[in-house]
Each structure stands twice: as C-alpha cells, then as structure tokens.
C-alpha cells in the first residue's frame, strides 16, 4: 500500500509547489500508515531528485523522457506506476497539468476523484476531504468511496514541512510511450513571475482608467517581485492580455498577498481571489464591495496612492 504523488519539473528543476506536494504526500502516507512513492516524468538530474528527501520523499520513480505532455500517454504512465507500486491514493497538484491528467488516471484506476482539495483530509477512514465549491462561495466535504482514490491539491493550502530521510531513485522504462499530439511551438514566459505561482500579485481594474496607466502598477509589481493581473473588464477592453484575468472564468489565484487596485470587487472577481492570504484594496469609492473582502483598505486616488506605495515598499526592501 502506498501514496503515489506525481511531481512535475520545469526544465529539470522543481519549484516550491513541488516541495509542498511532496511533503503533503508524506503527511498523507503517515496518516494512512503507508509509504510515499513519487513519480517524476521528464529529465531531472539525480541531485535535484535527491533534494526531495528533505521533504519526505522515499522512493522516487524517475521516468526519463523528452516526450512533451500528452494527456493519454502521461496518464497511462502514472496509472501503471500506481498499479505497480500498489498505490491506493494518487495525488497531483491542482494546476494545468494535474487538471489534464488526474481525470484520466482516475478512470484507468477505476477511482473516485476529488479535485482542488484544501490541505489534509478531514478523516482518513472514511476518506473525507474538504474543498471549495461554487467558486469559493461554499466549502464542501466529500468522501471518496472507491478502493483507489485520486485527489488534486489546491496550491498553497498544505504548506511545506521537512522530514529527515533519504530519497531512493528508481528509473522506469518509458520506451513504450506514444504521443497523439504534435508540439508546433512552445512559448515559455521568461523574466516574468508567473501569476499561477506568485507569492504576491498586483492586480488592476477598471479604476486604472486606461491601458496607458499600467506603468506605475508594473513598477510596484517590480519592487515587490510580484506578478501582474487584472479584472475581467480590463481584459475585455484589451488593456491587458486575457491570461492576466483573475476571477470566476479567468485564473483562480492563491498568493500570500493580493493587491486589488481600482477593482470594485464584483462577486465573479472575488471568486478568483478568495484563497489569497491577505488582500489589500485601493479604491476611490469607499462603498466598493472589494473592501468587504479585503484585509487592508485605502480610499484614495490611484494616481497619487500608487506611486507612494511603490516608494514605501522600495524603502522597506532597501532596508531589509
């Protein structure tokens, strides 16, 4: 019996979210009284894999391949690894890859799937997990009733713990992998902090007034090492690209700190930010609903407040 965690690398490196999900897997294994097995697909150096020992990794299955993500092929590999290691619980991150693979893996294992789970299970026997429903307007508890279970973990909900231990690496065969998709081109965002994994997000709404006014917002983001984002009207107007839209139908983010600048706080926007640890809102309208969702609020004009904020944070960063 074991817990199998699928871990994803980017250009051979692991990210903070990998450490979170590995240490989460370890805690699940402890809770279930079983062991943890990791599965890595791609090319990752041995040292990088070994580092995961500190987060609870025991056995690591390393499937070395250059094949790009293909839902069917990857899911098949994960399901076989689960079967071969006798896994009763398969865990993935609730990110674009996890969303693509977990459902296919669940069907292959005839398993129930609950996605976007928040933190550790409510109970192991029966296996009950908690997750947000209705786009953050409700919390739901669900029991997975099948013998084998699949879950995806909402990022930033379990935290990172360290463990004493050493990882054991075992290579697995990937020669039978086939692909039904052909990659034409890949565009990797470079130099910019990714919205999906940023600790700090600086987001602008209609109150920014026009696309030209984004410069000071980007400056603040630069000082804070933050990703930039926007509300729906802004992406609809074409002031910012669609991939920056945070909200119900856009991205759901869970940073430690979220700045809502000139965002009124429509319920659809709140659905995308409700998992943020701390929300700071700046709006000239004291009645804006964003203030009931925010932890800290400033009523004021962005044209004067925003540069002042950038200056104040710059001072803090310089002193620390």
């Amino acid at each position: 019996m074991s817990v199998l965690v699928y871990i994803e690398n980017r250009n051979g490196k692991f990210k903070k979210s990998t450490y979170e999900i590995v240490s989460y897997g370890k805690r699940l294994a402890n809770g279930l009284g079983s062991s943890l097995t990791l599965l890595s697909i791609g090319r990752v150096a041995e040292d990088e894999l070994k580092n995961l020992g500190a987060y609870g990794a025991g056995k690591i299955l390393s499937a070395e391949t250059d094949a790009p993500l293909d839902d069917k092929a990857y899911a098949s590999l994960i399901a076989s690894a689960a079967q071969n290691s006798g896994a009763t619980l398969v865990v993935m991150a609730h990110n674009v890859t996890g969303k693509a693979l977990a459902p296919r893996v669940a069907v292959r294992l005839n398993a129930g799937l609950v996605s976007a789970v928040n933190g550790l299970p409510v109970s192991y026997q029966p296996f009950v997990v908690s997750k947000k429903a209705f786009s953050g307007k409700s919390l739901m508890q669900a029991e997975i009733t099948s013998d084998i279970k699949v879950i995806t973990l909402s990022q930033n909900t379990a935290g990172i713990e360290t463990f004493a231990g050493e990882a054991l690496i075992e290579k697995i065969d990937t020669s039978s992998m086939t692909s039904g998709t052909k990659v034409v081109s890949t565009e990797v965002q470079t130099g910019k902090i990714l919205l999906s994994e940023a600790d700090v997000v600086v987001s602008g709404g209609r109150g920014m007034r026009s696309a030209d006014n984004w410069k000071p917002l980007e400056e603040l983001a630069g000082v804070l090492g933050a990703a930039t984002a926007c509300s729906r009207p802004v992406s609809d107007e074409g002031w910012r690209p669609h991939h920056e839209h945070v909200g119900q139908t856009g991205k759901v983010v869970a940073p430690n700190l979220y700045f809502a600048l000139g965002i009124s706080g429509a319920i659809q926007h709140l659905a995308g930010i409700s998992s943020s640890k701390v929300i700071v809102a700046v709006n000239k309208d004291p009645e804006a609903p964003i203030f009931s969702a925010a932890d800290y609020g400033i009523v004021g004009d962005l044209q004067t407040v925003l540069p002042k904020m950038t200056e104040a944070f710059r001072k803090l960063k310089a002193s620390s």
Binding site: D71, H94, R104, V107, S115, G180, T181
Partner: peptide, 20 residues
C-alpha cells in the same frame, strides 16, 4: 469546480485529449 468530466470522458472513449 471539479475539472474532471472532460478528461474522464476522453479516457472512457479512449480519445486523445488536450486540456487548458
């Protein structure tokens, strides 16, 4: 907010799938 039916359907039909 399950993000699951599409992938499951693909697997059940044995179709390729592309997500996101």
């Amino acid at each position: 907010n399950g993000s699951a039916v599409g992938g499951m359907l693909a697997e059940l039909l044995d179709y390729n799938s592309v997500s996101a």
